[in-house]
């Protein structure tokens, strides 16, 4: 049996809102360690990988592995019914047909209970080995979101160039071009404002901005985003959770 209680419903709300436009049907695999999701978008360009570690929950028990096949659009509708600050408990039997969501308002005795029918989802799994990346950058997630949104007004593609002392984001379009250059900086008082670059090799990679527009929906999950890039291989965009992560793997674009 699964019983996982979130101190605040807002965390799961944010997670679902962050991935529901990238993937619709996915298996939430629950184990004693927490809940994991891996799913690929229909175009097979973007992969979502989620771990909600058991330490995120104020109470958590899962005696044996349970898979919850969830339609995220329906899940999102139900989860919006609860308040952000409510306790949220997920409950499922060992071989469940449905998952129950219990919202408890902390300021009153109101308890709301919803159940979502589950689906049999036959999704394949992509094996992702640990890789040595050419470059790892860490920067404020909100800045990355703004840069991508600004440059998406000009182009469908975002070019990222990384050298040891700068990160350059570029977009070239029919109406004009744009670029934003960032330099590494350490902010001792506000570490979440820091920008770091670890470089093994200089990077020059290009990505579709429509996919990046989906990735940056994870911005509210973490102050910082970690971007790991190698030339000509998928990049990893990561928002760290208190225990766990939301990762997106995005295949690059190539020159014709």
């Amino acid at each position: 049996m699964l019983e996982g209680k979130f101190e605040e419903a807002s965390l799961l709300k944010k997670v679902v809102e962050s991935i529901k436009d990238s993937v619709q049907l996915c298996n939430f695999v629950c184990s004693e360690h927490g809940i994991t999701v891996q799913a690929v978008d229909d175009s097979r360009v973007l992969l979502v990988s989620l771990l909600i570690g058991n330490e995120v929950f104020s109470d958590y028990r899962c005696d044996r592995n349970i898979t919850l096949g969830v339609d995220l659009k329906s899940f999102a509708k139900i989860i919006r019914c609860g308040g952000n600050d409510d306790y949220l408990t997920l409950i499922a039997e060992d071989s469940p047909d449905s998952v129950t969501l219990v919202f408890e308002d902390k300021n009153s005795d109101r308890i709301s209970e919803y159940s979502l029918k589950l689906m049999e989802i036959d999704n394949e799994f992509l094996k992702i080995d640990d890789m040595d990346y050419d470059s790892v950058i860490k920067m404020p997630s909100i800045d990355f979101q703004k840069i991508c949104r600004d440059l998406s007004t000009l182009s469908e593609s975002l070019q990222i160039l990384i050298t040891k002392d700068s990160i350059k984001f570029m977009a070239e379009g029919e109406t004009g071009n744009g670029s934003v250059i960032l330099k590494p900086r350490t902010d001792i008082d506000k570490p979440e404002q820091s920008i770091t670059v670890k470089l093994n090799n200089a990077v020059n990679s290009t990505f579709g901005l429509k996919y990046i527009a989906d990735i940056v929906k994870g911005t509210s999950l973490s102050n910082q985003i970690v971007i790991k890039i190698s030339n000509r291989t998928p990049a990893l965009f990561e928002y760290k959770l208190q225990s766990g992560y939301l990762r997106f793997y995005l295949a690059p674009k190539f020159e014709d």
Partner: peptide
Amino acid sequence: TGVQGRLDTFFKVI
């Protein structure tokens, strides 16, 4: 502006 790559090219399906 380039050809969009696919994840299947890089990751093994299991």
